[in-house]
Design a protein around this nucleic acid. Structure first.
Length: 901
RNA sequence: GCGAGUGUGGCGGAAUUGGCAGACGCGCUGGAUUUAGGAUCCAGUGCCCGCAAGGGCGUGCAGGUUCGAUUCCUGUCACUCGCACCA
């Protein structure tokens, strides 16, 4: 019999819309209320920025993985929270607005509609009733509210407390009202108290060098600069000081490192975060720069007064991780921006110093990194006194020392630091060895190469012979006792620059007080929570001012100004928040998206949080994940959430590259290369189930892998084979294949069924979807040729397949005689006993080389197996005339004869 | 430079308390069916020698441990990602 065109076939174009409709009509995946006592599963995708170019094939990779976990979870009887939304503030919509005079909201919501259509076309089991965009007023109202929490919080680094998670910690974010006010501040009056409080808040204003990008018309966070250019667009960035909003993320640096330990994240992402935070321990040490004659009296005074919090203007304070090399400090360096530059510069050196400092200030970050290893610097003409040996050391200025790290000044030990070595060689500064390799006999005072490892002290007076680690601890303690230094910790992490000068972002709920002349006094007021949201003003032009003056400063006066009840004139803050703000807490809002009274009901929070599985691209390994963890910890400290970490398990999907060329080389997909695959086209040609299945079959989820249209065809063929295994391809209408019968499973069939259930189940648990799919292919290869295909086996496969290819699975489930969706059918179980074979094949080796395979009854004892092996003709001929030295038998796995002669 | 990761057929990949290397898919070869193409089905497919039986080689490379190594150890090379004058 031949197929004809009108006979039913695997018709995804009919099946897929049908079931998408069904799920929508029946609200199959909506979760209304939390059922106490039932296991919960909160699975989250990194929500997309709804760009104008639509969904990319990289999106469905992670989304399919989470969808499989969710659908599987429902079949396992869990209550599943699986939401989707939009990270919708951001530059592209605003750039488009500038070009076309269209309000960014219009573009944004249009793009969202397109993204939603594309995601629904792929059959993801989201609870769409929870959808929101970060640009919704109902949402950013609470983003502003959280900002007010940050504004209302100071970090008490010494507070010891036990959180609702039962863990003891030191350091806590506390309400600003609980901040102790020093007596002298109190005495200076209310305004002084307010300014003091403002200086301690987690959200504070700060005049600091910023990264200004004139092309984008905004300042950018350090994290948004790549190679001295803007991460977005690659535009040049200049640095100059500007008053900006900052978030005190550095207060949480230690907790952001420590609390990574218990998370189920890949070590490499944890490492990237640890690296980014960059904690180092060492010591701060004071070098005396006053009149040399006063050195001894200064030391005596210090040993009584102790190490001061502020260094004072007769000392140069340095930070070092190697206090054990103090005796080898042959010069010092201060950053060109250091406040001591002027004071330490002698008249003879003034001209050279001025020139150098000016040149350094003109260098952009790009220049500084480009010239990386080429050291430059200038001598100030002054000397400091080394506190441990009283020696005079020259003080230099060089831009390899950064003002933003440590104290902006270093002691240089050229013998044991590569940068100092280079500098000393270039400027002919003495180099003195103070650390030697252990057991090394000849220690030259002037070494021929730099030695940066640990060893034992030499040329270090009474400390000679002390091992590095011991010496570090010892000298730090002694410096502390004599008031000359103390142990110190430093981080690479900087406070987070939180303001932008663009329009399309959340306005700050902040007012600045104005004096009679309309100038800002520096004092601030906040909008009360019931005045939120502070809605973006309607505007017609979106072009940046071209200066660091924020866009919103051109907003209507009615939005910009008001008079407080006490008569004080107020001006609104005109910066907006960066795009990160909205994505810092969306996972919380998904649990309670419609709540009008609260950002998240505490009971709901305890039910659904934390996120059990979070899947997204590795490009967010530091920024988004670090920021979100920081906000979460602040909310935790303030009692708004009950867990200290938001995301229990994190998985980063690997990037999907374009199709490989004839040389087998695959490149990143990009418009300019013309190798972008559009999901719409794939769905049109092969269907959503094939796209989903293919993306999971390509290889391990976390791995980078190239696209292959032939591969899509491969999984499409598999689905068509499953279809033909269960349906009758020769009938005039869709109906069951006559081979599918109510029949008992044969022993062999039962074995295949149970083996497949076991493998697919375990693979899903491991997120090893590619191997799960190959197991189902094996099942199909086994059953397709059979003339009797028991219905129960077909039902089992249908359920196993349903998380991966839900549309075809629902359709087959219906054909197999079921009225309901299979979304909540119990997941099949397996019986280990039914997987075992009666007779097993055992490989036989002679001297580790495979010679034969023998069949023995399962559970045979070693003697039986050995005997059977010797009976094998091939083995026997290999053993002939040899002496058997040893027989290795691994029950059920292998036999190895070790022979001699 | 520092940190992390990855190297397996023509291609994507599978196999880890050390025990049959190459599951599954793609591609390729041959065959069946077909007016033809497509689709489908069957058989084969790591490399080398050989008509065959059979033999040799083989998980980036070089060593080591072991009866036995893709897996463990040492060294080395290549590629990818992240950070990059952080004292």
């Amino acid at each position: 019999m031949r197929r004809t065109a009108d006979m039913p076939r695997y018709d995804f174009q009919r099946i897929e819309p049908k079931w998408q409709d069904y799920w929508k009509q029946n609200e199959t995946f909506k979760v209304d209320s939390f059922e106490a006592g039932r296991e919960k599963l909160y699975v989250l995708d990194m929500f997309p920025y709804p760009s104008g170019s639509g969904l990319h094939v990289g999106h469905p990779e992670g989304y399919t993985a989470t969808d499989i976990v969710c659908r599987y979870g429902r079949n396992r009887g869990k209550q599943v929270l699986h939401p989707m939304g939009w990270d919708a503030f951001g530059l592209p919509a605003e750039e488009y607005a500038i070009k076309t005079q269209t309000h960014p909201a219009v573009t944004t919501y249009k793009n969202i509609d397109e993204f939603r259509r594309q995601l629904q076309m792929l059959g993801f089991s989201y609870d769409w009733s929870r959808e929101f965009a970060t640009t919704d007023e109902d949402y950013y109202r609470w983003t502003q509210w959280i900002f007010l929490q940050l504004f209302d919080t100071w970090y008490d680094a010494d507070c010891e407390w036990t959180g609702p998670d039962g863990r003891q910690r030191t350091g806590k974010g506390r309400p600003i009202a609980e901040l102790p006010i020093p007596d002298d501040v109190q005495a200076a009056g209310d305004d002084a108290v307010r300014r003091y409080q403002d200086s301690k808040r987690l959200a504070y204003q700060h005049e600091a060098p910023v990264n200004w990008c004139s092309a984008l018309g905004t300042v950018l966070a350090n994290e948004e600069i790549v190679d001295g250019k803007s991460e977005r667009g690659g535009h040049p960035v200049e640095r100059f000081p500007l008053r900006q909003w900052m978030l005190r993320i550095t207060s949480y640096a230690d907790r952001l490192i420590n609390e990574l330990d218990d998370l189920n994240w890949s070590e490499s992402i944890k490492d990237m975060q640890r690296n980014w935070i960059g904690r180092s321990t060492g010591a701060e040490v004071d070098f005396f720069v006053g009149d040399a004659a006063d050195f001894e009296s200064w030391k005596t005074w210090r040993s009584e007064a102790g190490f001061s919090e502020e260094p004072g203007d007769d000392v140069l304070r340095v930070y070092t991780t190697r206090p054990d090399t103090l005796y080898g400090a042959t010069y010092m360096v201060i950053a060109p921006e250091h406040s001591f530059v002027e004071k330490l510069t002698t008249p003879e050196q003034k001209e050279a110093v001025d020139a150098y400092v000016k040149q350094a200030s003109l260098k952009s970050d790009l220049d500084r990194t480009d010239l990386a290893k080429d050291k430059s610097g200038v001598f100030t003409g002054s000397y400091a006194i080394n506190p441990v040996n009283g020696e005079k050391v020259p003080v230099w200025i060089a831009d390899y020392v950064l003002i933003s790290y440590g104290t902006g000044a270093i002691m240089a030990v050229p013998a044991h630091d590569e940068r100092d070595w280079e500098f000393a060689v270039k400027f002919s500064i003495p180099i003195v060895t103070v650390v030697a390799r252990k057991d090394s006999e000849d220690v030259t005072r002037e070494p021929s190469s730099v030695f940066t490892e640990k060893g034992v002290a030499v040329n270090s007076g009474e400390y000679d012979g002390t091992p590095t680690d011991e010496f570090k601890a010892l000298i730090t303690a002694r410096l502390h006792n004599s008031g000359l230094g103390k142990q110190a910790v430093n981080f690479k992490l900087r406070d987070w620059l939180f303001s932008r000068q663009r329009y399309w972002g959340e306005p700050f709920p902040i007012w600045h007080e104005l004096d009679a002349d309309g100038n800002e006094t520096g004092l601030m007021r906040v909008d009360s929570p019931d005045e939120l949201p502070v809605v973006l003003p309607e505007m017609e032009k979106f072009k940046p001012t071209g200066t660091p003056e924020p866009m919103l400063s051109t907003a209507p006066e009615s939005w910009l100004y008001k008079t407080a009840e006490d008569g004080t004139k107020l001006k609104r803050e005109t910066n907006t928040m960066p795009q990160w703000a909205g994505s810092c807490w969306y996972y919380l809002r998904f649990a309670d998206p419609k709540n009008a009274d609260c950002f998240l009901d505490p009971e709901v929070e305890k039910s659904w949080l934390p996120v059990d599985l979070y899947v997204g691209g590795a490009e967010h390994a530091v920024l988004h994940l670090l920021y979100a963890r920081f906000w979460h910890k602040v909310l935790f400290d303030r009692g708004h959430v009950s867990t200290c970490e938001p995301f229990q398990k994190l998985v980063n999907q690997g990037m999907i590259l374009g199709e490989a060329d004839e040389n087998g080389k695959a490149e990143k997909m990009s418009k300019s290369r013309g190798n972008v695959i559009n999901p719409d086209d794939v769905v049109k040609d092969y269907g959503a189930d094939s796209l989903r299945l293919y993306e999971m079959f390509m290889g391990p989820l976390e791995q980078v892998k190239p696209w292959s249209m032939k591969g899509v065809e491969g999984v499409y063929r598999f689905l068509a084979r499953v279809w033909r295994m269960i349906t009758d391809e020769f009938a005039d209408e869709v109906r069951l294949n006559p081979a599918v019968q109510e029949a008992e499973l044969s022993e062999e069939q039962e074995r295949v069924v149970h083996k497949t259930i076991k493998a697919v189940t375990e693979d899903i648990e491991k997120l090893s979807f590619n191997t799960a799919i190959s197991r189902m292919m094996e099942f199909t290869n086994e059953f397709s040729p059979q003339e009797v295909r028991p219905k129960s086996a077909m039902e089992t496969l249908t359920i196993l397949l349903s998380p991966f290819a839900p549309h075809i699975a629902e359709e087959l489930w219906q054909l197999l005689g079921h009225d309901n969706t299979l979304a909540f059918e119990p997941w099949p179980t397996f019986d280990e006993a039914k997987i075992a074979e009666a007779e097993i094949e055992v490989p036989v080796q002679v001297n580790g080389k495979l010679k034969a395979r023998i069949k023995v009854p399962a559970g045979s004892d070693n003697a039986t197996i050995e005997e059977a092996a010797k009976q094998n003709s091939s083995v026997a001929s290999n053993l002939e005339g040899k002496m058997i030295v040893k027989v290795v038998i691994v029950p059920g796995r292998l036999v190895n004869f070790v022979v001699k002669g």
